[in-house]
Design a protein around this nucleic acid. Structure first.
Length: 280
DNA sequence: AACCAGGTCTCGA
DNA sequence: TCGAGACCTGGT
């Protein structure tokens, strides 16, 4: 399918989603119960698997007018340069249950481990797909399934089981959540054990279309301090970012995240020169 | 081998 | 409302 301004690699490698992996020129991933392979050739997205054009257009937010968003969030030279470097990075529109359950697990863990935990949860509770991969489990499957200890979730295990039961029982209402504005949705999300400021913002941004949400993790905190001299509480930094970047602050946040991520990876590979001989 | 990670919870001021 | 400390576990 033909796509507008879009960079598949930046988009799938920006820490938004946890079930995609690079496989040569292809990206392999599972979204809900669809197993997919994607490859980009300039303005063409090559698709293998059960995804129609409408689904991908929605998932990758291809209808967002990126140039208009760039114009809106380019409030200073610094962010403009970052945007220019990662042009085509898009936010991904995730399904609410999968997004919220995934980010519930994401607290205080690094991306490789988050991917492991989620893969483990899918293998343990999710439906097996024709190609051998596993769908993300439904709240019912997760609430009623067997041993969660094998998933190695640590203290997140109880959070996830409780959340799944709560959604299954209708105590936490995902349809109600979808109807709330940004502030109300964050307030409602934070009633869930394990969902705090940061995770609530991730869910609001990645699955509820609240593009002003600005999740602040350690990289964004670092970026906001180094680039704008802003530090302090979550509320302070997040609100400053939202005021500074405006109604698409979440987009600005994602570009900063990828820039910080790349900078950190580059620094760590430079400082560890391959094999090191142990001290005598 | 320490330190850190897409943080949250609890508790005391 | 805010800051401080604890926390499962695996990567780096």
């Amino acid at each position: 399918m033909r796509v507008p301004l879009f960079h598949l690699g930046y988009t799938l490698d920006s820490g938004q989603v946890f079930r995609w992996q690079r496989d040569g020129e292809w990206w392999r991933g599972v979204v809900g119960r669809r197993s997919l392979r994607l490859r980009q050739e300039d303005g063409e997205l090559v698709v293998q698997g059960d995804a129609d054009e409408a689904f991908l257009r929605r998932y990758f937010r291809l209808d967002d007018d990126l140039e208009a968003i760039y114009a809106d969030i380019s409030r200073d030279e610094d962010i403009a340069a970052v945007i220019d470097r990662f042009r085509g990075l898009r936010l991904i529109r995730q399904e609410v249950w999968e997004c919220s359950a995934s980010y519930l697990l994401a607290s205080y863990a690094n991306v490789p481990r988050i991917k492991m935990m989620i893969e483990s949860v899918c293998r343990t509770y999710g439906a097996r797909l024709p190609d051998g991969r596993y769908a993300f489990p439904t709240p019912e499957e997760l609430a009623e399934g067997g041993d969660i200890a094998a998933c190695r979730l640590g203290y997140r295990a109880d959070w996830l089981r409780c959340y799944a039961r709560s959604v299954r029982d209708g105590e936490f209402d995902l349809d109600k959540l979808k109807g709330l504005d940004y502030e109300s949705s964050v307030r409602y999300l934070k009633t869930v054990r394990g969902i705090g400021d940061k995770v609530a913002d991730c869910i609001a941004l990645f699955s509820l279309d609240h593009l002003q949400a600005c999740p602040v993790d350690v990289r964004i905190a670092r970026a906001m301090k180094e680039r704008y001299g802003v530090s302090g509480s979550y509320k302070k930094v997040s609100e400053h970012a939202r005021r500074h970047f405006g109604r698409y602050a979440g987009y600005a946040q994602e570009y900063l995240y990828l820039a910080e991520d790349r900078a950190q990876k580059k620094a760590s590979t430079a400082s560890s020169p391959g094999t090191r001989t142990p001290a005598p």
